[in-house]
Design a protein around this nucleic acid. Structure first.
Lengths: 155, 155
DNA sequence: GTTGAAACTTATTAAAC
DNA sequence: GTTTAATAAGTTTCAAC
């Protein structure tokens, strides 16, 4: 949970590092109006306190030949631990699934899937997904446009 | 589009930098079995070729006091450029929307929204979303579990 | 909070293989 | 591709203010 609270400068630091996770301490310090020493201390603190959980390189799916992104909602027919386990186990072994969410609402799961072309998509939906016994029904939405992978910070 | 193809080592480099975007050239080099010089060259190449689009710090929503994540599907009543523009314009000014996708399928948009509590969620859905004239109907799914924000690479 | 300096680690480049 | 060496830049820690 959130134990400590962030002041305006901490928030600026987070913003700077979300924009570019490889910014040097000095660059961040300039951007937020702090000395490098003080800024370095705060960054370390933000990491230690768990506000910053890590750093990642952002990869371009298109460059990897993954031209199609779809969202697939899934309903299971067996709402038992077994049914879920079976589903998760099958799904996890498929790298085209870039994200999967357990949800409560009209569906049980929502998957984000990247594929090269419609053939690959057909294979995935027909052979993989619908081949899982605990899957009752799926519905696929084609993603036409994404809001940048930019993370919006709440300020 | 993808002009150049990646060999096994390039893929390992991408994997290493997705895991930790601040890994030093030397660490990556060790991990993939390359000299630091060669590895640095490849990393720069991957950046220049657009395979790596950038680096980001990963922030913990929980630590920021954002305890609830929901997915909200949206249908518009006016499928005109104006209707979309109006919707996007309204949505973009709300930081609780961390992601929004234009989709083709059963819905028009899908939003990922982070809020502190159910009160904030109610406010957002009732006042913000349903206050937009071009919004016909929304449906909210509570996200119970996320597949790590880990990015699955297709290998 | 600040500056400044020292010690250490990296990054980058070049040269030679 | 490799190693080695030199330069430049960034990080971290410490002392002093």
């Amino acid at each position: 949970m959130s134990a400590k609270k962030l002041d305006r400068i901490d928030k600026k630091i987070l913003k700077a590092l979300v924009e570019d996770g490889r910014k040097s301490t000095i660059e961040v310090a300039d951007q937020v109006g702090l000395s490098a020493t003080a800024c370095g201390r705060r960054i370390r603190q933000l990491e230690d306190d768990g506000f910053i959980t890590g750093y990642s390189a952002n990869i371009s799916p298109k460059e990897l030949g993954l031209n199609i992104c779809v969202l697939i909602t899934v309903k299971l027919n067996r709402h038992t631990p077994d049914g879920h386990e079976q589903f998760i186990h099958e799904i996890e072994s498929h790298p085209e699934v870039s994200e999967f969410l357990l949800v409560a609402g009209n569906y049980d799961y929502l998957l984000r899937v990247w594929v090269a072309d419609t053939d690959a998509l057909t294979l995935f939906v027909a052979n993989v997904l619908q081949g899982i016994p605990s899957v009752l029904e799926t519905s696929t939405m084609l993603v036409l446009k994404q809001s940048g992978d930019l993370v919006n910070l709440p300020w």
